[in-house]
Each structure stands twice: as C-alpha cells, then as structure tokens.
Design a protein around this nucleic acid. Structure first.
Length: 803
DNA sequence: AAGCAGACTATTTTT
DNA sequence: TAGTCTGCTT
C-alpha cells in the first residue's frame, strides 16, 4: 500500500548535506564523468548493479549545486512510481525541499499532468478517465460486438494487443486502415477507429493514449511544445532500454533536437539504461532506442558503467557468460573487486514439489546457520502459476513468505467495481465504468435492457448516461416497464451519490455510501462463499486506503514549509479526481517486503520473497533461488521457436542472476505438473551456458546408459519450428516417492523414421522429416502441412500414432 | 433475468 | 488444476 503515499516524502532530517566535493568523492571515474558531463546528449550504459540510481540522483544534485540549475527546470522520467519515489527521496536527501519543484514522475503521470492542463486543446474535459487494460478490453469487446467481428476468429484480447501496438508505434486509425494488408489488420483498423470514437465520447484515455496523445499535442501545437521546452532544460530518463517508439518520440519532442524558431536550444538530455536488461519487448519496448542513441542524437556522448557493487565475481561471471550468447550486442562485462565468493549451487529434482522442498530446506539451513535472514532470500520463477508449489511447501514447513505480484489489489473485481462507481461520479460520460456497475450488484437490469438503452443512446447520439435518464422518463422505446423501474432506481441512487460527491464529501465517506446504498457489502456479507469474506476485507482495505489518502494529502497541504508546486494539471489534493488518478496510475499495491526485517513482529527475520523474474527487475537480494530452469518453462515454450524472443528470455535469465549479491542457486525439475498433467522438460539451455567450474551441482539427473548425459542439450538446431510440444506422461507413473529409474520406463512411446506417416490428435496427419536424439531425448520434426512443421518429443504418451 | 453446468484455455505485465 | 465464458434451463 505504501507506494500510494510515498511520493512527496520529506527528506530525512540531516545535520549536514553533502557538499559538492562529497557529491563526487565516492564515485568511480566513469560515474563521476556521468554526473558532471555538460552539454550534448548523454547515454549512460549502466550494467546491473553499477550504481545507476546513484549516478542519476547525484547528477541532479550536481546540476542544482554546481551548475546553477533551478529545480523547476528538471524533468526526470521513470517507468514505475516506486522508481520515481526513490529518486525523489534520494535527491531530497541531497538537496532538501528544493527537490519538490522538480518533475520526477513516470511517463504516464507526466503525460496525465500535461493532458489535464491541455485537455481543452484536445477537445476533452480535464476530468477525463484513464482506462487500464481491463477497461480497454471491455470497450473493445463492446465495439467488436457492434461491428460484428467474430469473437472466435478475433478475440478482444488479440484486437487489444494489436491496437496497443499501433499506438506504441504512433499509428492512428486512418494510417492503420491504409496500411492494413490482411483481414486481421483490416478488422483491427476498423475496431481501432470506432474504439477511439468511443473513448473520446467517454471522455477517456487509455494507457497508450496518454503517451500518444501527448506526442500529438506537442507536435500539433508548437506553442504548447515551446512552453514545456522553455520550462524543462534538463530531461533525464531512467530505464531507457524499456522505452517504446511513442515514448522515444515523446522524449525527443520534449527535449527538442534543434533550436526552435524562437531560439530555444534543446534541453540537456541524459538517458540511462542497459540493453541487456530489456525484458519488456512484448509490451512494445524497443531495444533499438538505446542501441541507436548515438545515431538519433548526433554528438551524443556515451559512458559505460561496468563496475558492479552488488554481486560476487562468481555471480557476475555466470551472468556475463549467459548474456554473451545473445547475438548483436554491445560488449559489456561486469566486474567487481570484492572477490569470488561462494560457488553457484545447482540442483536437479525429480519434480516441482521436490524442487520446492529443496529450496525450503536450503533456506532453513541458511537461517539456522545464521548465514541469512528470511528477508535476505528471494525465490524467482518464470510464471506466476509456479508460485503455488512453493506456497504449499512453505506453509507446511512454516516458512514465512510473501508472494509478490499475481492478482493485484486494484485488479480485484470488487475493488474495480467500487472504482467504477467513483469514476462514474467523477465523469458520468465514462460509459465503460457505467455499464460495468449498471447491474452490479444485481438490480434487475439485464443484458436485454442494457442493449436497448445502448441502441437508444446510439440513435439519439447521446451518452449512455443520458439514455438512462431517458429511460426514467419512459422515452426509450422497446424497454419493458420492469427494466425501466429498475433503471429509475439506479439513476436515483447515482444522483444521490453525485450530490454527495459534488458537495465535497471525502472519498472514503463516498465509498462507504456506495457500499451501503448499493447493497454491495450486504450481498457479500450474506454469502457463505469464503472468497466473499476476503472480498469484504479488500473493500474495507480500500476504504482505509482512501481515508489515509485524504489524511496524507491534508498533511502535505497544510505543511507551510513544503514548497508545494501546484501547477495546472494537478487535481486538488485529496479530491475524488486526485484519488482516481492515483489509483489508476499506481499499479502495485502489494508491497515488496522491506529488507530490514520488515513487517510487524516477525522476530526480525522477515519473510522470504517469491516473485516472477520480471517483478524482480531492479531489486537485489543476498540469496537468490532461480527455479524452474527447464526448456519450455524458462525459456518459455512460446519463445523456443523465435530467436528474438529467445534473446529476451536470455536477458531475463541475466536479470535473474544479477539480482543475487552473495549466493545464487539454480534448479530444475525433471517433471512438473502443469494444467493438472505432469510434464517432462529437458534442462534449460541457460544451464548449459553457465561456466561449469562455477557451479557446484548438489544433485544431478540420474544418468542411465544410452540416455545421454545431463546438460547435453543437443537440440540447439535452429531449424524452422512452428511450435513445440512436450510429451505428456501418464499421471499414474509419476509420484514423488517413486524410485528414479522408474520415471524413464517405457518412455519411448514411438519409434519413428524419416518418411513415416503419423496422425496427431491436435495437428492431424503429418510426415516425419527428421529424427533426433535417443531415449527420453528422442524428438521428431514432423510436417503437418497446414498445421506447420512441429518438433515433438516422443516420450510418454504422445497423442500421436504411427500409421 | 438469473443461475447453473459444461466447454475452453492457459506467459511475462513498470502504467 | 482453475478461472472465465457460453449457452441452456428455469
């Protein structure tokens, strides 16, 4: 929860702030150069653990202290609120309250601020809603349905992804339509156009719009651009490798690349990033931006930070070895002067259950030996569903833990329902939110009634809300009286709530009123589903969040010493719009346990943290367990066939390894249950890429004669693979207690030769093109004609027969 | 309009 | 396995 409120934190009281000399003294030469560089665009290539944040914050402090820059001239952009908060805090510790006049924010909140201020220019109201991916998907579903798009052929999700990609590339609907080359793209363009119309009539922007619309604003209105250009003379961007094309363009537009007609020089630009840690390509991030920085910004200067202050040399060497396998990368080798440290510990378990037991046992003995507190330990996995086994085992053993990520607070249904109510109160045109709550809780307004009202709204060219009002006055044709009555009740309810909202009722009281008067809480309380009990708790939590929000902002506002900068574009502190903005733009309510032993009374040892590798980016732990290193799990199955995706998986592995400070564990399981059925996976190729002398294998795969040895992943073929599936084993033959060899019995289900014809349950008829490997590693590449060429493992019960 | 049973489908996710 | 969606019944 704390990320909601830690943005404008006051700096800790300091007797004396560091003087200028101190600002540079404890920096290495490269860091120092990055801090003091003046003039042209600067790219700081900051390897993992190389003191990136330190460089950024010192640079800002140095600008203020040494170069006479006013804080108001500084714009620092990050990707997460957490990063923004940390930067603000650390700068404040160096320079004090002057830090409050800087813009330190995420791309998105920066854009919201600009858009609120300039909303009129774009023909929007400044009370616009911000749609997240869930709202977006809902609206796209509605649009697709209205346009008769076959949901079987093109799922809303697919459409949403494509539209998002277009926006990330700054392609508007017209351009999308003209460039559409196939049926899918034509449909997407069609939906895109209508979707934008609906967004704008709902007075809403989606996440991608926040960026894209700000770019068009700056490009279409030079005077607006000039205002910001004049104002921000220093633009700093963190995690530059994660920027997409739209964000890149935004940075360019903001900083400028040449002097304006009115003689304003480009702002001084400083970007920091590491191409090797780019793990968000699937969301549009382009590694190109950092790779081509020097081309994009002539006379740019580049500084490489390679000295690492986090990990042992063993860990760094492992990381270097893995990432070195990625093609076309700028050479970079992390090093440290703090010694080799412990060897990496490797472990091969029979199944996922045993892997978790190994991890738990190891954590226990580390704790017992006093070599680590629980809070020093993190367990990483590739996908969220892998957390379950760990939870089971940890609970059984009484090991305190916390899972980070998964379904987040603000994504829970009940919370979103309440937010939808609030949004409607702030912006009645917000049709997506309005339709969400129309019949929640159930009040007798069904699909049919909703459709009739929607049609009426469409025909009369009025908003859905106005159409509901028409329903009250019996002006909607085809609406049956029962529904009209139900709608009347709903409209009356909303009117009352709106009255409360506009008369300045505080957000938490408003929430309480919604919970009571809608009967939402009552419904949950009456239910005997245990899930509903936790929903009630979440709602109570939400009210608490709202109350703290009000109190916190009141505190900040009343602090006379605080140099609060309230430009246009910032909603009144504590107000409903302010709350909604915070909620929309802060995703992670679940906090990551703090390393200092953390939560209340855990005996000081804290808790073990469990999370995906993606979530782990930017964090560090003394002890790290990298689990599930199996081909098909990590790297993920969907990445196996595509070199670009495989390279991203490798960067992910690199990120995972470099989170560790002192001890690194890597493990894999021979079988793993997924979707109910146990699955066999070969070793991750990344394990083979670890230098063997750095790894102490505690347990290896039992080798049987003729079955090949562990680690010889022969399948490094780069041949075309449309898809890869792994054989299923019958569930009866696997149990954690069964002796080892047993798992291999009758594993070769099919003996195939080139030219054989086969029939596969999923892919149909095919011809064997090639065969590879023996025993459990036996695979065949099969041409299934229209279903493509597929490489299959022949172990276990392959759903395939030889003809 | 609402509730239930069977079908379907499964990454990662800073905002 | 589990959560969501669809279509059928009441």
């Amino acid at each position: 929860m704390d990320t909601l409120f830690d943005l404008p934190a006051d700096p800790p009281a300091r007797a004396a702030r560091p003087g200028t000399a101190d600002l540079l003294e404890d920096l290495n030469p490269a860091q120092r150069e990055a801090v003091t560089h003046a003039g042209g665009p600067l790219l700081v290539v900051a390897g993992a653990g190389s003191g990136k944040t330190r460089v950024l914050t010192r640079r800002i402090a140095y600008l203020l202290a040494e170069r006479g820059v006013h804080p108001g001239e500084i714009m620092a952009i990050t990707f997460t609120n957490k990063a923004a908060a940390e930067m603000r805090e650390r700068v404040a510790a160096l320079v004090g309250k002057r830090a409050n006049a800087m813009w330190v924010s995420t791309f998105h909140s920066m854009c919201v601020r600009i858009l609120r201020r300039e909303a009129k220019t774009l023909d929007m109201s400044s009370s616009f809603s911000i749609y997240d991916s869930d709202d977006t998907k809902r609206l796209i579903t509605l649009v697709a349905r209205d346009l008769d798009v076959d949901p079987k052929k093109y799922a809303a999700r697919t459409l949403a992804v494509h539209i998002s990609n277009l926006k990330n590339e700054l392609v508007d609907p017209e351009e999308a339509a003209s460039k559409a080359a196939n049926d899918l793209e034509r449909r997407v363009a069609e939906v895109y156009a209508e979707y934008q119309r609906r967004l704008s009539s709902a007075n809403a922007f989606d996440f991608d719009d926040l960026i894209m619309q700000t770019v068009s604003l700056l490009q279409a209105f030079p005077d607006v651009a000039e205002y910001y250009r004049r104002r921000f003379r220093h633009v700093l961007v963190d995690e530059y490798q994660d920027t997409n094309h739209a964000q890149y363009t935004l940075v360019r537009a903001l900083a400028g690349t040449e002097a304006t007609d009115t003689g304003i020089e480009p702002a001084e630009l400083c970007v920091v990033g590491d191409a090797d840690q780019s793990i968000y390509a699937f969301r549009g991030a382009t590694i190109r931006n950092i790779e081509e920085f020097e081309r994009d910004f002539p006379n740019a200067h580049t500084i490489l930070l390679e000295q690492n202050y986090r990990s042992t040399q063993t860990i760094l060497s492992a990381a270097n070895a893995v990432i070195a396998r990625n093609p076309n990368r700028r050479a970079k080798r992390l090093w440290t002067d703090s010694g080799d440290g412990e060897k990496i510990v490797g472990y091969v378990s029979d199944n996922d259950h045993d892997e978790a037991a190994f991890v738990a046992g190891e954590i226990d003995s580390l704790a017992e030996r006093g070599e680590a507190d629980y809070s020093d330990v993190a367990v990483f996995y590739r996908t969220n569903n892998q957390s379950r086994v760990f939870e089971e085992i940890f609970i059984r053993l009484g090991l305190p833990y916390k899972v980070v990520g998964g379904v987040r607070f603000y994504e829970r249904r009940e919370v979103r329902d309440m937010i939808a109510y609030l949004r409607v109160l702030a912006n009645p045109d917000d049709t997506v939110s309005l339709r969400r709550i129309l019949n929640v809780p159930k009040r007798g307004i069904g699909d049919r009634a909703e459709a009739v009202v929607a049609t009426h709204a469409e025909r009369e060219r009025i908003s859905f809300w106005a159409a509901l009002r028409d329903a009250v006055e019996d002006k909607v044709p085809l609406l049956n009286p029962r529904s009209a009555k139900a709608i009347t009740g709903f409209v009356t309810l909303l009117d009352e709530l709106q009255e409360m909202a506009s008369s300045g009722t505080e957000v938490h009281d408003l929430l309480e009123a919604v919970l009571e008067r809608t009967g939402y809480r009552a419904e949950l309380e009456e239910s005997d589903d245990p899930q509903d009990a936790s929903r009630v708790e979440n709602l109570t939590e939400l009210v608490t969040v709202a109350r703290e929000f009000a109190e916190f902002t009141a505190e900040v506002t009343n602090d006379e010493n605080a140099e609060l900068v309230l430009d246009d574009g910032v909603p009144a502190p504590g107000s409903l719009p302010a709350f909604l903005e915070r909620v929309s733009l802060v995703a992670d309510a679940d906090s990551i346990p703090s390393p200092d032993g953390g939560e209340e009374g855990d005996g000081g040892a804290g808790v073990v943290t469990l999370m995906t590798v993606h979530t782990a980016k930017g964090l560090e732990y003394p002890v790290v367990f990298c689990t599930g290193w199996e081909d098909g799990v990590f790297p993920h199955m969907r990445a196996l066939g595509d070199p670009a995706e495989l390279a991203e998986e490798r960067r992910l592995a690199y990120v995972a390894i470099t989170r560790a400070r002192q001890r690194l564990y890597v493990s894999r399981a021979l079988t793993r249950s997924a979707w109910g059925q146990p699955q066999m996976n070969p070793a991750s190729r990344f394990l083979d890429e670890l230098p063997p002398d750095l790894v102490d294998w505690r347990r290896l795969e039992p080798s049987s004669p003729g079955f090949g040895n562990f680690g010889s992943s022969s399948g490094s073929s780069s041949g075309p693979r449309a898809a890869t599936t792994w054989g299923r084993r019958s569930s009866s033959s696997t149990s954690s207690s069964s002796p080892f060899g047993k798992a291999w019995k009758d594993t070769v289900a099919l003996k195939l030769d080139v030219g054989d014809r086969v029939s596969h349950d999923k892919y149909g008829l095919g011809t064997v093109i090639s065969c590879d490997g023996v025993g459990p590693r036996a695979t065949a590449t099969i041409d299934f004609g229209a279903s493509g060429k597929v490489r299959l493992m022949l172990i276990g019960s392959v759903p395939m027969v030889k003809l």
